[in-house]
Design a protein around this nucleic acid. Structure first.
Lengths: 223, 223
DNA sequence: CTAGAGTTTTATCAAACAGTCAATATTTTC
DNA sequence: GAAAATATTGACTGTTTGATAAAACTCTAG
């Protein structure tokens, strides 16, 4: 392999294919067992290649992990980035919640990888959280404050509001095992998702207090 | 040690002390690294004793883990057990949420241990969840349904309601690292807790939609 | 004080683990 | 199609890990 000073390293077809296979296998292992609990042997086995061959592409265990985390954070923050200050507050929030819920449904392994990392004290991404996540949250908190000042949403602690959106939606990926035990096998995962979306919409918009107690509207409309 | 057939095994002073020290150290390690990621060496070091000595009290790694889980589940479900069908619905829910939040504050390691186990597919406690957790949830779901039928709380999916209480409260233990990054060091952990409690109360009772949109009350009161 | 139960340590083991190396096989490039 | 670049493998290394055996020590009941 000639060293090309200026030119960016080109990746071969095989390289791209294998890196993809490896990262997929690594995601499976890391998300299920955490960094320490995952082993290169199992990742290699799961990727269908020998350990030395895997290490040819990622020289250390940590390299795979970091590649996964880097890729993860990009897509992970996308829904929050899309929260639009100029949009209608309630629909904006609703669609943010729905997007987060979709991510929990479509990328549960990524969610668990992230959960594992934070659970263990985020030793490998604390800096990234400070440099990427924090500023983004600060920015969106301002947006929320604006909406609250205008009376377009109830005045609450904006950061805790964001926490509650994250936790309720990611719960369906991170605690999936428990969710399945409790909901039983009756309702398929598609139905589960719709039930969750409907419930969260009610919770975040109106809470649990019956409308009758808030407004003076009668519970039954008489035509 | 004489084998006493009928009599239950008495524990010596040293035994009780050491088992306590070991379980505390084990909780620290397991909650931070998961079952696979934790090592007996580190637990022993953290407990201030030699590895063979530790293994004298718990012959296998898994024995420590199971002892912790068993102890955990007992206290973990207590708040839900206390949810009282004969009480006032909204205050009952409020105090359930507060108790869960207090547990996240006072027993974060236990919360993380549980999260780790579920995250990894609950291989060791799935059965316990089915035999202990599920029936309890089913029972309390009935209580919630009763309240909904009476119009005392908004009609929502009761199981998802429970999920949202679990996830929002446990978030403060499980994702503590992330919470701290975002809230910054300004507010101490005591203040954080009060902010969270206040926020969750508003969320679960009233949601985000401004009262003015629900009732016909004017947004600005003219004296 | 002492015998035996209970506790701790030293030494050790086999398996699992992250990672290396040189040799071989395959693909790409000219 | 041969040389160069890339990819794969088997054999191996040093370390960590879960677990055991037996000897040595300490505590406690009588």
């Amino acid at each position: 392999m000639k060293a090309r000073a200026t030119e960016t390293q080109r990746k071969t077809r095989i390289q791209m294919e294998n890196e993809e296979r490896i990262l997929d296998a690594a995601l499976e292992e890391f998300s299920a067992h955490g960094f320490r609990g995952a082993t290169i042997d199992r990742i290699a086995e799961h990727a269908g290649m020998s350990k030395p061959n895997l290490l040819y592409y990622f020289r250390r265990k940590q390299d795979m992990y970091e590649a996964l985390i880097a890729r993860l954070l990009k897509t992970w923050l996308e829904p929050l980035r899309e929260l639009d200050a100029t949009g209608d507050p309630l629909p904006e929030l609703q669609s943010y919640i729905r997007r987060k819920l979709e991510m929990a449904r479509d990328f549960p392994r990524e969610s668990r990888l992230f959960a594992n990392e934070i659970l263990q004290g985020a030793p490998r991404i604390k800096r990234l959280l400070e440099s990427e996540l924090k500023p983004l949250v600060d920015e969106k908190v301002e947006v929320l404050h604006g909406w609250m000042k205008d009376g377009q949403i109830n005045p609450v602690d904006a950061r805790h509001l964001i926490f509650s959106i994250w936790s309720t939606t990611q719960h369906y990926a991170d605690f999936d095992t428990q969710v399945q035990v409790i909901l039983g096998p009756d309702r398929g995962s598609e139905g589960r998702f719709e039930d969750a979306a409907r419930y969260l919409e009610t919770l975040f918009l109106d809470g649990l207090r019956p409308q009758a107690e808030k407004a003076e509207t009668p519970r039954v409309r008489v035509p």
